[in-house]
Design a protein around this nucleic acid. Structure first.
Lengths: 153, 153
DNA sequence: ACGTAAGTGGAAATGATTTTCACATCAAGC
DNA sequence: GCTTGATGTGAAAATCATTTCCACTTACGT
């Protein structure tokens, strides 16, 4: 059977300059993570896995990837930036689990149309939109329920 | 003619505890600001206007207002939190000028419906959405154009 | 007016991110 | 294979928004 896990392309590395071991490790960890993850968390994971990459390098690599359009970024409620490897170049929106970071691409046609209409009728120039959907995924919801139940009378 | 400028209501103060001079000044400045403004900027403005409120108090008041639902909050791209006095209790979305902070409420029916549908069909619990539209307002666009024109050619 | 819980402010603490800079290393060119 | 200059790295320091601490003040019910 074929290996269907997402993987980094050489293209990803080429886009952000020189191909170093560290960048490969960061990119690899980001791809493996699937879903949004913070630079700090990714760094911890790398160190734990015996890939001691410097924190600065993690930040530099993630920022570069985001600038090159190979990663999606958004701020969580605590102001932390979460990154996610973007397989393709398409503009997408995700429903992200606030507990585990699992992210689900959602059908976003209606919002795009809506945003375009606003852009056209507002008189504003260079209109951009950022749409974030967050919630608790079924798995985490189940866990939370169990926790609640055992704690309450 | 009637004075149509937005103003703080006694209600705003009552919602967040004791009515102090400092809170009145912060609230007043927030109302006068119209559009989104950061805690830091609001503090500078207050100090400049001869209302020396402590930075901590500005943060505390804005946070309290947001929690009481009397202010909208969102994170700008730099991770700064921007606040805006909310006249009514309705859930709204705004088109915010990235240059001057001017904000325009936009008709958001379609997004709400879209978000609700996602919430219902995804299996996720407690789904929230944050939608941010940003651009350059006509005024700032004009200024930018002039700047560009005189510099180029 | 009094008492006291709630509020204030300046300084210190926090926490994510960025910068600095001495050192390592990649990719040519010889 | 070896020098070389640009590019990348990492540990520590710097930055910046925000929060917390804590001694001092103040609003407000009695």
């Amino acid at each position: 059977m074929a290996d269907n896990r997402p993987r980094a392309t050489v293209h990803d590395m080429a886009l952000i300059g020189r191909a170093t071991q560290q960048r490969a490790m960061v990119l690899g960890a980001l791809v493996v993570a699937e879903g949004f993850i913070s630079a700090q968390a990714l760094h911890k994971r790398l160190v734990a896995d015996g890939s001691p990459v410097g924190l600065s390098t993690v930040y530099r690599t993630l920022t570069a990837l985001a600038e090159a359009g190979r990663a999606d970024v958004f701020r969580d409620t605590n102001g932390e930036r979460l990154f996610r490897h973007r397989p393709g170049p398409d503009h997408r929106h995700y429903l992200v689990c606030t507990q585990c970071g699992l992210s689900l691409p959602v059908e976003s046609g209606p919002v795009e149309k809506w945003a375009d209409r606003i852009a056209r009728t507002s008189g504003f120039a260079d209109v951009r939109h950022s749409v974030e959907l967050s919630g608790v995924c079924p798995d985490c919801g189940r866990k939370a329920d169990q926790g609640q139940t055992s704690r309450s009378s």
